[in-house]
Write a protein that binds this DNA or RNA. Structure first.
Lengths: 207, 207
DNA sequence: GGAATATGCGAGCTATCGCTCATATCGACA
DNA sequence: TGTCGATATGAGCGATAGCTCGCATATTCC
């Protein structure tokens, strides 16, 4: 493997004008990524789209990879926050309702910025820091495993680790597919229902 | 979006020595892709790794994208062949056994060259020709739909097209995830079993 | 106001990329 | 053995990438 690029942010913005610059750069990164794809999204182009010089960009992001990593982080953070809070909300709800709510939450979370999400998933090489960022999924998986553990008596499952793994990936996959296919809302509802149905046949002890 | 690069092969090898060259180039592409990642896998580097000059490379592949596309095609072909033959084998087997066999086959197929598979999935930008290649999945999906059609009476689902879609995506997703997460064999078995169980609760009429 | 610091600028450096082409060598058939 | 298309070569072209650095400007603090 080649030597890893620096990814730690070079400096922190201290004044509000520089914070605005950083935001503008990240926004521009998202736009350029969506419109040109990863390969053609050069730092010069991004800086120009942000109305900022390359120099400024490199004051806050030591490499292109770090820049994209920061964007991914910002994007996933907003998604994960939503999912986590919902998960906390349904901690004591009946199993069926909890599942329904969580699947809906996943659809919501993916609807935040679908175009950007698609580009990030499909085009951004998951190397270096980027792969760590994506591993937020692991965290969610662990939370789901805990959730299942707490409902142990209601479930037919015993290997809850494997169950959480399958569960998370299945829900993720279908949600992704639905978002990427840009289904109209009604059809998305159908898919969500279908998915919920599947999960509720899989999990509970009673059948 | 940028203009699409040429991807059709430039010429076909007519002598066996040139066929050897083409193979060497594809093998080298796989190796370099695995060891350096997509971005650093330059055509010069690949040619050198193949013990061949860049010129020779460009006699058979009009662009880097075409080169990678050819590799993806070769890789998916070997995977798809395995899945298809298994699907034919279980055409008359009991539903439960068929599902179990097919899911195992999927895990097997993904285990052919996991390192390469991972790189191809994670790093290769899915643009141009590459996305078409991935659409081999559609073909498999159609076969699965036919399979389901033949078992219509045993299933609780009615819209078999949609069922095939969900089924393929779910199995694909979990298998992918298992490979990418580099699960140890024992855990992979658990996940496969869970997945099988889930599918067998989803499909059959009796429950 | 003025020193100190933070921020912004952008021409341009270096490296490397994908790719071409003039030339050399090989192989099949006469 | 000679001929000619198929195959192989690799120096190097033009383009563009990521990134630096000397300097200009804005802000803060005294």
């Amino acid at each position: 493997m080649a030597p890893r690029a620096r990814t730690a942010p070079r400096k922190k913005p201290r004044q509000q004008r520089s914070q605005a610059t950083v935001d503008a750069i990240l926004d521009a990164t998202a736009r350029v990524l969506c419109s040109t794809g990863y390969d053609r999204a050069s730092t010069n182009r991004i800086a120009m789209a942000a109305g900022v010089s390359v120099g400024s960009l490199y004051q806050y992001f030591p490499s292109k990879e770090a820049l994209v990593a920061a964007l991914v982080e910002r994007h996933t953070a907003s998604m994960t926050a939503l999912v986590k809070s919902k998960l906390a909300e349904v901690a004591t709800a009946p199993l069926a309702e909890a599942c329904r709510t969580m699947i809906d939450a996943m659809f919501e979370a993916h609807a935040v910025d679908p175009r950007l999400h698609k580009v990030l998933i499909e085009q951004v090489p998951r190397v270096g820091r980027l792969e760590q960022v994506v591993s937020v999924e692991r965290e969610v998986e662990a939370l789901v495993a805990l959730f299942l553990e707490a409902r142990k008596s209601e479930l037919r499952r015993s290997r809850l680790g494997a169950t959480a793994f399958v569960l998370c990936n299945v829900v993720e996959a279908v949600t992704h597919a639905a978002v990427l296919a840009e289904l109209e809302p009604k059809r998305a509802r159908e898919v969500a229902d279908e998915l919920t149905d599947m999960v509720l046949r899989y999990l509970p002890a009673d059948c």
